[in-house]
Design a protein around this nucleic acid. Structure first.
Lengths: 259, 259
DNA sequence: CACTATTTGTCCGTATGTATG
DNA sequence: TCATACATACGGACAAATAGT
């Protein structure tokens, strides 16, 4: 009964997850299903993967297609394959997914007690898109400080930020943004935020974000858009954050007072 | 200057949004870019689309590929095409995106002042997945009431719910879930929820969800998982909601007390 | 009225990728 | 591994409708 464990693993997956009429290639759909099952722990480290034949029969694809997904998983280091033995989920260092509270005042990830690092990909003065120009109440050609940053945990990038902040100046050194948290920076430069508005949605990874987060382009990401206003209702900061949802999720707790 | 408007529309788009090395076909990537630009209003109703040649040059694809995306947009009714004139964003009734508050106690969409309707796709007694069995503290074979529902606004489905509720019984008629809001149903059946925990992430649409929400499978969706507990800390209800992020987003407002 | 530029519609041939048995 | 079918993507060519000169 060598194959029993792999076949049992198949039972944990849903054969309805694949769509022959989708524009996305079958091997990639199947790759995504297995990839997610591995990073989410449905297929535990060390366990036996379904065989090529199991996958082919279970998902109703040809053996070549099933084979290709396993080969690509092996190329990414998620599984190891041994001829005559089978395919096994590899013992990689899989970072524990980060769960951050949302809506609390101190939502800064710096308070999370996790060793996350912030890297500045670019800092420049540029003209924001038209909708932001009007939101900031700026003239058409005004240049604003744009920051593109990435946050990583144990080497794995999981968040990508694009922010616009008129009060930040060209002279501020890039290095200053690496260490200090955003809130302390706001204070240091005299920015008082009285109200924040966040919008949550989902978006496929564009090629540049995909590169920065080390995910395939088109991968679904959690998207947060944040508007920060001062006491006068003036927009002071605009941020678009995109999160790799394999590594990160937001948590909201509500106590219901009474029925 | 007949072509000026279309070429100007091209400038609103980002040629970096397409990736020739992605497993997803080029025509579908370009389709997604244009589709989103239309539903988000970047390309307003009635305006001229970039011509096939504009798109081919601007996104560095062949005319055949550019043409195919426009043909598919026309097939979906998002644009109309006229030989010798051009392609124009069609005057369809585009539903205004819904923005719902998150984290307030009364987050039920019934309170939104929008005419949303709830449809029950299925109601059945079934054995929940292993992780939920343990979360509910149930024996291995216990059957629980599972509901699959869809919420629509002006005929367009935008949310897909899968819920498990042990206290709901097999005898409850399907119809009862169509009208009443969830919270009133909880009350009626003696369910007192004291605490709720929500987790937000993103996920590609599986084929069944894609069908229910009328979107291409694989489309990025906003995903919310909600655990509802009673005063004793016993899990009483489990819900997975998936939202079409073109039509729906969550909003969180925070007042910062002081710096 | 022609003449031209632009745009969509249709066709060809070919190369590559995907998927099957 | 092989043979085969189909989808994707490319370049090129020409026709037909439209609009401006």
């Amino acid at each position: 009964m060598r194959q029993a464990e792999g076949a049992a693993a198949l039972a944990l997956l849903d054969r309805e997850l694949i769509d022959a009429n989708s524009p996305s290639p079958l091997y990639f759909q199947l790759y995504t299903v297995l990839h997610d099952a591995i990073v989410k722990g449905v297929l535990p480290v060390g366990s036996r993967m379904p065989s090529e034949k199991d996958l082919a029969d279970g998902f109703d694809v040809s053996r070549i297609t099933a084979r290709r997904t396993l080969v690509e998983l092996a190329a990414k280091g998620l599984v190891v394959r041994h001829r005559g033995k089978g395919t096994f989920v590899s013992h990689a260092d899989r970072p524990v997914p980060i769960v951050a509270p949302l809506g609390s005042n101190a939502e800064s990830l710096g308070d999370l007690g996790r060793d996350t690092t912030l890297t500045v990909l670019s800092k420049r003065m540029a003209v924001p898109p038209p909708d932001l120009q009007t939101a900031f109440g700026l003239g058409a050609g005004t240049r604003v400080c744009q920051l593109v940053r990435v946050r990583s945990a144990s080497g794995q990038p999981f968040a990508h930020y694009v922010s616009w902040t008129p009060k930040f100046s060209a002279s501020m050194p890039k290095k200053e943004f690496e260490g200090a948290s955003r809130l302390t920076l706001f204070e240091r430069y005299g920015l008082r935020i009285a109200r924040m508005e966040r919008f949550l949605s989902a978006e496929g990874a564009s090629p540049d974000v995909a590169r920065a987060l080390n995910v395939p382009s088109g991968k679904p990401l959690l998207k947060l858009v944040r508007f920060s206003y001062d006491a006068q209702g003036q927009l002071q900061d605009h941020l678009v954050a995109r999160y790799n949802s394999d590594l990160f999720s937001y948590r909201v707790e509500t106590k219901v007072g009474l029925d």
